[in-house]
């Protein structure tokens, strides 16, 4: 099948560095294959900019197969663009029309400061993870195989679903409050559901929520935008579970 090409207009956030004042810049890009991914389209634009001896646009990317959680981008008013259950690298240009103007912006949140152009600093997620996203293991030399402990199918499935979170930050970007509740709840849930996670269960949820608040994320108002835009379709069920875990921990933790 012959590849179709489209011509597009782009409005892209350019910002020299973390302290600079950025602005939306307009670009025109012709002959974009509809089979190319959104990031390949940006590569094409950068090539054009380099040929024009202009500074290429900085954006995050790594595996380009939807699993690493590096790519971001707020495309036409939605995290990872208008498609569902995909990351920006899996978004294809066939989702856009010939002659369309496409807005590309970085994630917007106080806790995700812009480093340059479309690249934001997501280390606040790392710090939340460090605050409690771990389990204790026996290192005395007789470590037990994790699979030796029987786990119910329903719990195993739910823990796995929560663990598919790639930490891309689309939930924060989509939330009108820039709340990180979906991310944190996925990280809390994947361990709260499993016997291995019971040891630190109470301190985990308290510490991770405390870190989340300290990073300056907003509060959840249950709009559900995060779950709709999440490339891994993490459910709001996880937020409810974290709320339960937190309540339990708040009233019983030492």
């Amino acid at each position: 099948m012959a590849s179709k090409t489209i011509n597009i207009n782009l409005k892209i956030w350019r910002q020299k560095n973390a302290n600079a004042k950025g602005s939306m810049e307009t670009y025109k890009l012709d002959n974009v294959s509809t089979d190319s991914s959104f990031l390949e389209m940006l590569d094409q634009l950068n090539e054009q900019l380099v040929n024009e001896r202009k500074e290429p646009i900085a954006f995050d990317h790594d595996c380009r197969e939807g699993i690493c959680g590096m790519c971001s981008l707020y495309i036409n008013g939605e995290a990872h663009g208008p498609d569902r259950a995909v990351t920006t690298c899996q978004l294809h240009m066939r989702k856009f029309k010939d002659g369309e103007t496409i807005y590309v912006e970085p994630w917007r949140a106080k806790a995700f400061p812009v480093i340059k152009d479309l690249v934001v600093d997501r280390s606040s997620f790392d710090r939340i993870q460090q605050a409690g996203g771990f389990v204790s293991v026996n290192t005395s030399g007789n470590t037990i195989d994790a699979n030796a402990i029987p786990i119910g199918k329903a719990d195993a499935d739910k823990a796995f679903e929560a663990a598919t979170c790639i930490g891309c930050g689309a939930c924060v970007a989509s939330c009108k409050n820039a709340s990180a509740m979906l991310f944190v709840s996925a990280k809390v849930s994947q361990m709260a559901l499993l016997p291995q996670g019971k040891v630190e269960a109470k301190q985990r949820v308290l510490n991770m929520v405390k870190q989340m608040d300290e990073e300056g994320f907003g509060n959840c108002t249950n709009t559900g935008a995060c779950a709709v835009e999440c490339p891994k379709e993490i459910s709001l069920e996880n937020i409810a579970r974290m709320n339960r875990e937190y309540l339990k921990a708040m009233v019983t933790a030492e």
Binding site: K11, W13, M24, Y74, N76, G77, E78, P82, Y103, E105, R108, A109, K110, A111, S174, K176, N177, A178, S179, G216, F217, G218, T223, G224, A225, V228, E229
Partner: peptide, 17 residues
């Protein structure tokens, strides 16, 4: 306060009521 800078173009109707 959690989002000091708003999006230039936003489409919240696509994901929330």
């Amino acid at each position: 306060k959690a989002r000091p800078q708003n999006y230039a173009y936003n489409n919240p109707g696509a994901n929330s009521s």
